[in-house]
Simulated scan of single mutants.
Amino acid sequence: MLLVPLVYLVIALAQVQAGAYAAQSTAIDAARQAARQPEGAAARAQALGELHFADHGLESARWTVELSCSGDCARAGSRVTAAVEARVPVPGVPQIWGGAHVPGITVRAEHTDVVSPEES
């Protein structure tokens, strides 16, 4: 009798942990890519997010990636920050009210990288 709620809790926690890993991986890779190649960084960050969330089996998660710079994004020494916020759906809950109202848990990740000087 108590085993069913325990198994559900383990599955739900695994889903949230996968979301946290996907968000952190996206933030790290997006910041690194933006620090090395600032042009087109937003599009690459979206592509990286799609890749990481799909790799963790979270295609239904809603997530956003925001890039910000401490100054000129192309200047050596500037800091580039990628912030990821994801809403991970709770597994096993029916979508009675539609996709916009599915219960979920929000996870956030942030990573900052420094723009390195150009190699000569």
Rank of each mutant, 00 (worst) to 15 (best):
M1Q: 06
M1N: 09
M1G: 15
L2N: 07
L2H: 07
L3R: 02
V10A: 05
L13E: 06
A14I: 04
Q15R: 11
V16Q: 04
Q17N: 13
Q17Y: 14
Q17A: 14
G19S: 15
G19L: 12
A20W: 08
Y21D: 03
Y21L: 14
A22W: 11
A23T: 01
A23Q: 00
A23G: 03
A23E: 00
S25Q: 06
A30G: 11
R32M: 07
R32N: 10
R32H: 12
A34F: 01
A34H: 01
A35D: 11
A35F: 08
R36L: 15
R36T: 11
Q37R: 14
Q37T: 14
Q37N: 07
P38G: 05
P38W: 13
E39H: 08
E39S: 09
G40V: 01
A42G: 04
L48N: 10
G49F: 08
G49V: 09
L51C: 03
F53E: 13
D55F: 06
D55W: 02
H56K: 11
G57N: 14
G57E: 10
L58A: 08
L58Y: 07
E59L: 08
E59A: 09
S60P: 03
S60H: 12
R62A: 13
R62S: 11
R62Q: 09
W63A: 03
W63M: 02
T64D: 09
T64A: 02
T64S: 14
T64G: 05
V65R: 04
V65N: 05
L67G: 08
L67P: 06
C69W: 05
S70V: 04
D72T: 06
A74W: 08
A76I: 07
S78K: 00
V80Y: 00
V80L: 11
T81S: 12
A82T: 11
A83M: 05
V84Q: 01
V84R: 01
V84C: 01
E85H: 04
E85I: 12
R87C: 02
R87W: 01
R87I: 13
V88M: 06
V88C: 13
P89Y: 07
V90T: 09
P91V: 05
P91K: 03
G92E: 00
P94W: 04
G98P: 11
G98N: 12
G104T: 05
I105R: 09
T106M: 00
V107Y: 00
V107H: 00
R108A: 00
R108W: 00
A109H: 10
E110S: 13
E110M: 03
H111K: 02
T112F: 00
V114P: 10
V114A: 15
V114I: 15
V115K: 07
S116D: 15
P117L: 15
P117A: 09
E118W: 04
S120H: 15
S120N: 06
S120G: 13
